[in-house]
Design a protein around this nucleic acid. Structure first.
Lengths: 204, 204
DNA sequence: CGCTAATCTAGAACAAGTTTCAGACTTGAT
DNA sequence: ATCAAGTCTGAAACTTGTTCTAGATTAGCG
């Protein structure tokens, strides 16, 4: 897989300095987000931290939500790499998916503010961010299918995966806003993962 | 059920004029939301439309998100009333829940901008709005349990209901942001509702 | 009725996301 | 090396959510 397989398809290639600027911006964004979540990512501060003019920041990321969704794409790639190194060990597909999601969840717990910023941006995004949000969604789908160990999912299984993603996002939100405990998120994830067995074509 | 069963518990009773102001505000909010969604609900405009000073608006609803979540509570009550009059007719609990949610979905489709405003507010809400968001969640739970026809759900069934709510909210978001079609939302709802049969204690 | 505390109003002020603009700097092609 | 086109900078301006203030109004009470 080429290194930039996940970036937007037909945008003009960036010079090194531009690539460096982009990285500095994403780094500053993640850093500010880690401190204080969504609200702490202030565009003026991101611009200053990354040594870029405000107008330039807006040229790279046309809104705060775009910026945070891009930050999420970035983090997701990390996560996917990490997960690949240690694949889940569960016996059934449902177990492996639940295990994978719980592992991701634990990673998010280590940086709850960052999680807050990314997830809030993701669900708050309007139509103008659809392509980017979709990209995040596809990446998540790949991670789940990986955990299931499937290359040719049936439409039913894809539905189940979509529902799992819905649950994952929404459960994260309830956790981040303090309306659900970590234990409850775990239960919800395990509950929804049972859908996988239900849609397994070899279901006994 | 007393008329104000859903409002915050120990707040001082409102005078008639205050009650009227509150209604005017909620009405203006819903009206502006119906026009242009979340962004069209501007606090100055809400204040003007409802003939109330900006400061007063903020006394009644401490933020735009509070206002929109309250608007959602209001609409949910309507919806619940409407649904009660014509209970779903499906044979299994899963069918009835799916039928109920699809009916609610159709209602939202009639006012997509209003739906946008309410759902975005709901998922964007931070901890300071937790009580109100929780109230909406409980109301939704009641609607689903009603459709299932249960008074004493098992913990497993409550988990399933929570997962259904997660899916419901998240599927709405993907629809509102144009990343999923109406048909896909329908499929997702039907898929997640199969969890109900799975957790039915009398499951054969 | 007259008092006091709470509430409401109009409007200014502030905060942070976003836009705009003139001028300086880079880049790529010749 | 030079020119044109595109990019970056710094700063100001604009928008909308939110807060604050001083004075008018209202509600509840003796």
């Amino acid at each position: 897989m080429p290194a930039d397989a996940s970036t937007s398809p037909a945008s003009p290639p960036l010079t090194q300095r531009q690539e460096a600027r982009r990285r500095r911006i994403l780094h500053a964004s993640a850093q500010l987000a880690s401190r204080g979540g969504f609200d702490a990512v202030q565009m003026r501060e991101v611009a200053e931290s990354s040594q870029v003019a405000l107008g330039t920041l807006y040229r790279y990321f046309p809104s705060k939500v775009h910026l945070l969704v891009a930050t999420m794409q970035d983090q997701l790639e990390h996560m996917h790499g990490t997960l690949r190194k240690k694949p889940p060990t569960g016996r059934t597909a449902a177990e492996r998916v639940a295990e994978t999601l719980m592992r991701a969840f634990r990673a998010l717990q280590r940086e709850p503010h960052l999680a807050d910023a990314m997830v809030r941006a993701l669900t708050f995004a309007d139509r103008s961010v659809s392509p980017e949000v979709d990209q995040v969604s596809r990446q998540t789908t790949v991670i789940i299918l990986d955990a299931m160990g499937l290359d040719n999912p049936t439409p039913e299984q894809l539905s189940a995966v979509r529902v799992i993603e819905h649950t994952w996002h929404s459960a994260l939100i309830t956790w981040l806003s303090g309306r659900a405990s970590i234990a409850q998120v775990k239960i919800d994830i395990e509950t929804v993962c049972r859908l996988i067995d239900l849609t397994d074509p070899e279901h006994t």
